[in-house]
Design a protein around this nucleic acid. Structure first.
Lengths: 153, 153
DNA sequence: CCGAGTTATATGAACGTTCAAGCATCACCT
DNA sequence: AGGTGATGCTTGAACGTTCATATAACTCGG
């Protein structure tokens, strides 16, 4: 806990900036992916994470962890991606409870169709306005905040 | 549009950091406010924005704009806050279509009960890990990105 | 002042997320 | 082996957001 609960004027300004930025950015990315692929960004990230995993598959467990999403959310999401035919599920052999989420060929295909446009959006909105010093600073700062967040309380 | 669609390794790392950070932060704040007030952060922000406006009231129009939310979303949200008794609506005199969203006494009361805890959370998670140079850098960087975002495409 | 187009808001359905159970399997102790 | 608790995952209901549509009030040219 902090000694004073209030934010300084500067902190308040940054916080409002952050709120606006993250909403605008979120909306922008969301619409972009929705238009290109007809799925929300959260689902795109599932395809992306699976594509980088060995055998393009992950246990629901681990998938939820890399997404930092709840198991429930992950389960619902994978169920829907399964309907699209972009992911399929298989029981794991080692653990009878385990489910393996596997990126299908169609899912891979879809992903590589979408990815460049998505990357271009991210670049143009987040990185084009920044110079090298900015990105270095941003990396340092995000590292600090993330470390704090991941510490639990 | 950018010349190359791909992100550099550093940009990719920052982007992932940002995604994780914003999700963790969002979850943290959301649960915090949900626990304290039983409303989502988006609704808390409505109370906050109204509290700062003249007569603690704004036209739906302007409210949506300061929130950077759609009119539909704002309408649904205010409807629900009205059920809680924290906001009420009144037709505007000048423009027969206009609706004025007004923070009630109960809404104000609720807000000042919640605000300090909320500020403490923001401070502890976002600002405590940063030193003065960090916050200055962050202000500069967010300013740049926001300017870009607000430029439209 | 009449009608076409615009603006301000609301509404309902569809979708995604959260929350609280629920079920099956595993792990461990006896 | 058999029970007790933990783990992995799913399900359904409740809620918030989005999208398309509706409605009412304004504007402005004729």
């Amino acid at each position: 806990m902090a000694d004073s609960p209030w934010l300084s004027a500067e902190q308040q300004a940054i916080w409002r900036h952050y709120l606006n930025l993250s909403r605008l950015l979120q909306d922008r990315i969301e619409k972009d992916i929705q238009r290109e692929a007809g799925i929300p960004q959260a689902y795109y990230l599932i395809l992306a994470m699976l594509s980088e995993a060995p055998d393009r598959s992950l246990r629901m467990n681990q998938l939820a962890e890399v997404l930092r999403a709840s198991q429930s959310r992950t389960s619902h999401a994978v169920a829907r991606l399964e309907q699209h035919g972009w992911v399929r599920r298989e029981r794991t052999l080692q653990d009878g409870r385990g489910q393996l989420a596997i990126l299908t060929a169609a899912g891979w295909q879809r992903l590589i169709e979408i990815a460049p446009g998505h990357a271009a959006t991210v670049r143009s909105v987040m990185f084009d306005p920044l110079d090298e010093r900015d990105t270095a600073d941003l990396a340092r700062i995000y590292g600090k905040i993330l470390a704090q967040l991941e510490n639990g309380t």
